[in-house]
């Protein structure tokens, strides 16, 4: 039996707001509601990185939230995909080059699916997730690592210690 088939059928979501204006967040919430009802596709909002397959990020990644984002990302088990929801999440959008903003999620972690729009509509979000699922089906179990704020990844024998994968959430960034 090919287990990869089932990745598509039960994607569980973790949502993180990395400095968004809430516009996309409430649309993600709307996706869960009866009108769009994503649970019919097996999608559950877990709110817990360890049990999530898809990371839905909104917001341009403010400096305060970037290491939190990376931390959450590294706590997700592979295979995993990241969906950037909203224009500012894709590129920084209107917040691009503001002094406290990181200009898009893909500066920090690998993004698999981009959903443009300000705010992204529920239909778009669902489509973005569906696109991400296509990618998820073909991913391997290799550890995916953030581009920035990377901590060391220890290996002893066959055992991988991924506790330090994200750089420390330190007082300087607060």
């Amino acid at each position: 039996m090919r287990l990869e088939r089932f990745r598509k059928k039960s994607p569980w979501i973790l949502h993180y707001n990395a400095g968004s204006c809430n516009g996309c967040d409430i649309e993600i919430l709307a996706c869960l509601a009866p009108r769009y009802d994503v649970e019919r596709l097996g999608i559950l909002n877990r709110g817990n990185p360890k049990q999530a397959d898809i990371l839905l990020v909104t917001g341009p990644v403010t400096h305060r939230s970037r290491d939190r984002l990376v931390e959450l990302y590294t706590q997700m088990a592979e295979p995993k995909v990241v969906v950037a929801v909203g224009s500012c999440t894709c590129s920084g959008g209107i917040f691009r080059h503001m002094y406290h903003v990181g200009d898009g999620v893909d500066q920090f972690i690998p993004v698999d699916s981009y959903v443009a729009g300000c705010a992204a509509r529920p239909e778009q979000i669902i489509e973005g997730v569906a696109r991400a699922l296509e990618i998820l089906e073909h991913k391997s179990h290799e550890i995916e690592r953030p581009f920035q704020l990377r901590g060391p990844l220890y290996c002893s024998g066959e055992q991988t210690i991924r506790r330090q994968m994200a750089a420390k959430v330190s007082d300087e960034t607060n």
Binding site: M1, L3, E4, R5, F6, R7, K9, S10, P34, D37, E39, R40, L41, G42, D53, A77, E78, P79, H141, I143
Partner: peptide, 26 residues
């Protein structure tokens, strides 16, 4: 889900979840 006026997941959804969870990196 039906009580909340949603379509809800397929009946076999728990088993899909089951197989997906096996497939995750431990």
């Amino acid at each position: 889900a039906r009580m909340q006026r949603r379509a809800g997941p397929p009946l076999m959804q728990p088993f899909y979840d089951f197989f997906k969870l096996i497939d995750k990196r431990p």
